[in-house]
Each structure stands twice: as structure tokens, then as C-alpha cells.
Design a protein around this nucleic acid. Structure first.
Lengths: 132, 132
DNA sequence: TTTTACTTGCAAATGATTTGCATTTGAGAT
DNA sequence: ATCTCAAATGCAAATCATTTGCAAGTAAAA
């Protein structure tokens, strides 16, 4: 835990360790508010959480995920993958594997303004079994 | 123009016609603020624009597009397509064609919580030729 | 242990979007 | 053509997520 932080040059502080820990257990993306709730006993200011998320993202520890919800979500930045989100209850599942390179290059080959793709976001929406 | 509105059961009002017209010319997604600027001489309240965008979306005239910008963007909901967005200047280009069905069903087949996909969002990011 | 820059907390600001409410206006009924 | 009423509009104010300013606290290098 601490080593991850040291590697990035970020100072090792209690708040950062706690925030990083909330991501380690599970694979579900978390918002600042989610983290605040999970750590409410630890009494970490919401502002600190926002700032920590921003520095973790800049350091490459976290990655933003766009779930089409009101707020911003983050997840550990280890491996590239996508999600499927339930339109009714908001449940998020990770979908392993992404093999969009061919599709991507096919689409970009027709573009007159871009020649390379640096990143992409792909999310699926449906209704989970529990809700349907 | 008016017929599109009548078809949906929405009342035909000057504001709605003007807002719908701002979408017709071009294919670039627009935010409420964009529309407000384009129609500034017409003196349409920003609140009306927000409300109109919401009802147009509900009526299926417009669709939200997620460009990973600060605000919400909309575009005409006619045909399904994706976008590539410049990370530097924010320029947006439409990418025609989307043939993600196979990939989608391959990914979902591994899911234990979902069995069908109702929708998806796929956006690409890069640096446009002008900016690079 | 001293120094110094990086972090944190609290309060207040911001910016996009929404809501309440009184007024106006389409559009169907008269 | 006029009346009626629900729907649409404008303005002010509220909301909500996120950001910023600033003074105080604290890791970590010297």
C-alpha cells in the first residue's frame, strides 16, 4: 500500500492510505461520496478525498470511469476493461477483455481530422437480472 | 420542423422551433450553453433551453452524448454513431458506422448479472491534426 | 531536530443544472 | 373566432458535485 504511494512520489499520509485501501478490496468504481461514507468513522474531509482522487489519477494509480451517473467514479488503474451498468439500480459489473483495436482503427481510418486514437471509453447499459 | 414536434405531442412554440433549428444545420453535439449563445439575440432563457433539451430527449428527438466535458451535450437522435474528441481543443468528429454487436455479445456472454445489452456508449479520444 | 514543501480541514466560491411560482400561450373545445 | 386549461416560459432562488483560498499541521529530506 505504502509502496504504491512512494513509487509515485506522493507523500505517504494516513488519509491516502485509507483511501487507497477502500479501492483494494473490491473492483467496483467509487465516487468521492462513496469513499466518504465508507470512511466516515475515519473523519476524512470530503475535500481531501477529492484532492486525493485527483492526485491518484494524475499519478496513474486510479482511472476515471464514466458510468453516466451524477458524479465522477474512479477505479484502480491496473488493467483496461469496460463495464455494464444497470439502468434501474445502477449496479456495475466489470466486463473482462477489450478487443476494440480493429474496430477503432477501422473507424479512424475514415477520419479526416484524426490519425491516431489515444484512448477510448466504452460502457454498456442494460437491466441486470435482479431488476428484470 | 414543426411536424417533428407535432409528431411527439409536444406543443409547437417559438423557443422549441429555434432550439430544434440549431441542431438541424450541423452534426456537432451542443450543450445548453452553446444553444444559448447561438440564440442570444432571440432571448430565450437558459432554463427554457434546459427544459426543452430534457423534453426533446424524452421524446426521442435528441440523444445525450458523453464527451467527457464539463457539461451535457445533445445531438439529433437519428442514426447511431460514435465520436472522436480532441484532448487538446475539444473538437468533435462523428465516426460513421458502428459494428460493435459482435464484441458486445462476446463480452456479455461472460456476464453473470446481465443477459442483454440495451445501449452502449463508445467515444474515442486523441489529438486532432490541427493540434498535433 | 530543523526546515520546507506538501497536505489537510474548514469556509466559501463556482458552475452546471433544477425547482418554485406567477404569468403567458398553444391548441382543442365551444 | 373565442374561450379554457394544461403546458410552457421567465425570473429568482435552490441544489449538488466539485473546486479554491487560506491558515494550520505534518511527512520527509537535510
Amino acid at each position: 500500500m505504502e509502496e504504491i504511494l512512494k513509487k509515485t512520489g506522493l507523500k505517504v499520509t494516513p488519509a491516502r492510505i485509507l483511501i487507497l485501501e477502500t479501492f483494494s478490496g473490491k473492483c467496483e468504481p467509487l465516487s468521492a461520496e462513496d469513499i466518504s461514507k465508507k470512511l466516515k468513522k475515519k473523519d476524512i474531509d470530503l475535500v481531501t478525498i477529492y484532492r486525493t482522487l485527483a492526485s491518484f489519477e494524475e499519478a496513474g494509480i486510479l482511472r476515471k470511469v464514466d458510468l453516466h451517473k451524477e458524479s465522477q467514479y474512479y477505479e484502480l488503474g491496473e488493467h483496461h476493461h469496460h463495464h455494464i451498468i444497470c439502468n434501474k439500480c445502477g449496479f456495475v459489473e466489470e466486463l473482462e477483455g477489450c478487443d476494440i483495436e480493429k474496430l477503432a482503427s477501422k473507424l479512424v481510418s475514415k477520419s479526416s481530422n484524426f490519425k491516431t486514437i489515444k484512448d477510448h471509453s466504452l460502457e454498456f447499459f442494460g437491466v441486470c437480472k435482479k431488476c428484470s
